[in-house]
Design a protein around this nucleic acid. Structure first.
Lengths: 245, 245
DNA sequence: CGACTAGTTGAGTAAGCTCAAAGCCCGTGG
DNA sequence: CCACGGGCTTTGAGCTTACTCAACTAGTCG
């Protein structure tokens, strides 16, 4: 697997060899976290910045009434908590969905990296895209009906995973239960089940054994009102499609 | 009116006189924008950073089906778009709700400001709090019932406006129509109307002629599951209550 | 072969929506 | 000073979406 971080940040702006080497250097020392474990809990004061290099993780918050809301999906190449430097303590938790490779990056390393202007810009860009993605999630939950909502979410994952080379033939691994999908979309698990049946019935997707295939990409995007604008992929970026066909 | 920006950023970390003077300096040159006008439209490439010094503004996005989602409220002391530096173009619009005083800050000025470490940290903090606020909005819409949702929103405004000194006796100006509230909460205007009646009936609030009073602050916070943690107000901060009593 | 987890189905319910009409407030102009 | 108009709020009624509860099925793993 190529380095997801480099692919992702490089999709914003290609790096010169020195910067690329610096970035590649930080991902050497990763360790593994099992599925469904916390990487950081709400209220903790994390010391390092965490970077996912493989697997899926989520940002989430548990509510008093026992429900949960998932805010964001952390895919390979995503930082969990560039916040660390400023905020007192975590206002939400981060947990793995599947087994993950995680790199713990000391603050000092980040500070050293951000002395390189291209890298600093790329990290800044990444956090802005995270924020933009969060806004789109709000639109999604606030203003789209369940079927479009789930469709939109799947379109987003497709695009984001394409960037880091984890899609082939419009198919990707999605280690998600329907209950987790429900906590993401603000719906009940029963309703998620019915929405998935609808999306399958429309021949938009298949989803079986944690593997999701988008059968009709344009159709699903149209149906869901998906416009990838908010992901701010650089316009000059060459589309990193892996479809062999 | 004291300078909202200084109050807000200072609530994170007090500034030394030099930094305070620098920050105060940027707000001298403001101009007025009428109610219900765009400050920046989606798709535009803004040149300056905008700072609200008085009035209410919103971040929003219009959907294809004619609906609208409001993401965030920009209150006095809030920056609209520190994004400017990195992202190609706006992925959402910013509009006034009431007449606003706005300062256009050239990029260079921001760059000069961020050479001062305390100021750079404070701006970084402000954007992180924005992001955290967005996450809470997602929880709110995704997982709370309509009554709690609106209650939570009002609690947030109360706290944020207290920080900048715009609350007295738990009362503040809220230049919002019910339709705008609906676009914020992901509800219909009819339902917002009924929710407001409920909150009035419970003696939690009064809301008349764009003036909102929270009659039972603790009660409303408890009812709505409001925990101000996510606003990351500094722990050592002296509560800037204005209640004369 | 249990036991557990995840997915599926049905039936009844409730939260919130739509449509439509009416009332209220306030500014404007006669 | 009053009539008019427009925007906002309120109300009612019927409908839709999504929820809850409960049971049942299908894999999976020891």
């Amino acid at each position: 697997m190529t380095d997801a971080l480099l692919r992702k940040l490089g999709s914003f702006c290609p790096f010169n060899p020195k910067d690329a080497a610096l970035l590649a250097g930080i991902t050497v020392d990763h360790h593994t976290v099992g599925a469904h474990e916390d990487i950081i809990r709400e209220g903790e004061v994390p010391r390092d910045v965490h970077l996912i290099t493989s697997g899926f993780a989520i940002r989430y918050k548990n509510l008093a009434d026992g429900t949960r809301q998932i805010f964001a999906y952390l895919l390979p190449g995503d930082f969990c908590d560039l916040h660390v430097f400023i905020l007192d303590k975590m206002d939400h938790g981060i947990a793995t969905l599947s087994p993950c490779s995680v790199v713990d990056i000391p603050r000092d390393t980040i500070l050293r990296l951000t002395e390189r202007p291209a890298i600093a810009r790329a990290l800044w860009w990444a956090t802005l895209v995270d924020e933009s993605t969060l806004r789109e999630a709000l639109v999604n939950i606030g203003r789209r009906r369940a079927e479009e909502r789930v469709g939109h979410f799947l379109c987003e994952l497709l695009v984001r995973l394409e960037v880091v080379g984890l899609v082939s033939d419009n198919r990707f691994e999605l280690p998600l239960t329907q209950a987790e999908l429900a906590d993401t979309m603000g719906l009940s698990t029963v309703h998620i089940n019915r929405v998935l049946q609808f999306l399958r019935g429309q021949k938009f997707i298949t989803f079986d054994r944690k593997s999701l295939a988008v059968l009709d990409v344009d159709g699903l995007k149209r149906f869901s009102g998906f416009d990838p604008n908010y992901l701010h992929l650089a316009p000059y970026r060459t589309k990193p499609v892996m479809t062999p066909s």
